[in-house]
């Protein structure tokens, strides 16, 4: 739960990415295999944009997993904001 009026000092994560066979977790995004679908979840940069989710292909998941694509490439490919 967030706490009002208290300054929060989040750790700097850089481009750290945690991977398993079925998931990738970045500093402000993740891709997770859920019910046979790869769900890309990200913190939208829009003002008041919220956390958004979009299904991506298995090939995309593998490309990001292998470092051939970035999360930004996914956003461009699927026209996400």
């Amino acid at each position: 739960m967030v706490e009002f009026g208290k300054k929060i000092y989040p750790p700097k994560k850089g481009a750290t990415v945690e991977k398993t066979d079925t998931s990738i977790k970045g500093p402000h995004w993740s891709i997770t295999l859920i019910d046979g679908k790869y769900v890309y979840e990200y913190v939208s940069g829009s003002h008041g944009g919220g956390i958004k989710r979009h299904v991506v292909s298995k090939e995309d998941f593998e490309a990001v997993h292998a470092g051939r694509m970035t999360d930004y490439d996914l956003a461009l490919k699927y026209d996400l904001s």
């Binding site: 967030v2 402000h28 913190v43 939208s44 008041g48 919220g50």
Partner: peptide, 17 residues
């Protein structure tokens, strides 16, 4: 910035790059 509380809880950040 207006951001979802869940983004702070889950990702520990107020926003992306």
């Amino acid at each position: 910035r207006v951001t979802p509380a869940s983004a702070i809880d889950q990702y520990g950040t107020a926003g992306p790059p």
